[in-house]
Design a protein around this nucleic acid. Structure first.
Lengths: 219, 219
DNA sequence: ATCAGAACCTACCAGGTGGTCACTTTGTGA
DNA sequence: TCACAAAGTGACCACCTGGTAGGTTCTGAT
């Protein structure tokens, strides 16, 4: 069976990837329910039966799209051991990058709204996503807000996440009118938390920041 | 033709209302695209052909639902002449009431996400909605933030709206875990704006709540 | 060069979609 | 009371949905 596996790891893997890329792009445009297997198949250059050869059903397609996006942003890569400032800086940098990748943003806006329905296949995913994001943010805010009790770290974390989700909707509706980064940075300043510099990656800035990962997403 | 009109204003009007009520409830559960005319018809006690006798097509149904919701919240009723404090108080009160009416919240969460797509029938509606909400909020924040320049009134308005939209998603995913009012009030406090009292309307007792207004929605 | 298994397609299924049409039933103003 | 418009129906349309069955073509390790 080792031969089998090696064989599968060539062409099959490649079209499998084309399929989830296509699915991701389409889910971003219109959400999960409004996209058909034939739409996905057409964009990937197959028949819808071809898609179902690689994935058991439509739902599996969605789950793979989400899994792949998680690999791309690799938020967990930061791990719980990361410094609080680094975490916030990293998240602000993600906001920045999102402003250049409407696709990823649209995907999450559509899916998080749909997934509100407990019967939606992505419902557990988003429950877990928000839970673990909060678990990451609460200690960070606890440290950065130290002393001041007013917004509790829990509240600050929830506000921070909510702010970004809400900004994304307004931004998608009218991209030129909304500066997501500015709004997020202003929020942090209101809490007495300094904002990271404008464009740490690239040439002149003080910090060297991380390498140019392909693209990132919504938080 | 006056006779005709008077006749129409009785039974027709009544089932017309039943239809948009049914449509509103279903759109709230699952969004616009996932709900069929037959679903709406069944809930309203008709055939789907009957629904299409009253509305030219499915889209008209959605537009009427939105128009009706606007009448209910009657945000414009406040008018531009309202006091700044009164406006903020009113909005916070709406947040409060939303916490008791998941249907209205879910309607807007679903639709605002779907309407991100420029081809969606509600796209112009939401563009206008955010625009006019901002037009109402910017002067209010300009006054209440007076002096302090840090969050510009424009930014504060955008944050305020985004915060609520984002909170609604988290709240729908896990209603018991999220206190939308607390998060909004804390945000205002961070800007140095006092929060309105807990339950201004009605008796001082913690329970009993407000009068049984049908329901209200999201801001 | 072979040949097993992966990749993929055509054809089909039952069921759902928005919308139309010709028709019957019901309500109501005169 | 009556006539006529409004309300509502059932049958139908073409089309799309996710999923299956059975077959053909391709691929790549031997």
């Amino acid at each position: 069976m080792t031969d089998t596996e090696r064989a599968r790891s060539t062409k099959g893997e490649r079209t499998r990837r084309r399929i989830i890329d296509a699915a991701g792009a389409l889910f971003a445009r219109s959400g999960y329910r409004a996209v058909s297997l034939r739409d996905i198949a057409a964009r990937a250059g197959l028949t819808h039966a071809g898609v179902l050869h690689h994935f058991p059903d439509k739902e599996a397609t969605l789950l793979h799209v989400l899994r792949r996006r998680d690999e791309i942003d690799a938020l967990p890569v930061l791990g719980p051991g990361i410094g609080h400032r680094e975490l916030i800086d990293h998240l602000v940098r993600i906001v920045d990058r999102n402003s250049r990748t409407p696709g990823a943003v649209a995907l999450y806006v559509h899916l998080s709204a749909e997934a509100t329905d407990p019967a939606h296949p992505a419902h557990p995913y988003f429950l877990d996503r928000y839970r673990s994001l909060r678990a990451l943010l609460v200690p960070a805010f606890a440290a950065l807000l130290d002393g001041r009790p007013d917004p509790s770290p829990e509240t600050a974390a929830r506000q921070f996440i909510a702010l970004q989700d809400g900004l994304q909707v307004q931004w998608l509706l009218d991209p030129d009118a909304v500066d997501m980064r500015a709004a997020v940075v202003a929020f942090l300043r209101s809490l007495g938390i300094a904002a990271p510099d404008r464009h740490p990656p690239d040439a002149p800035a003080p910090t060297t920041g991380t390498a140019p990962t392909p693209d990132e997403r919504s938080v």
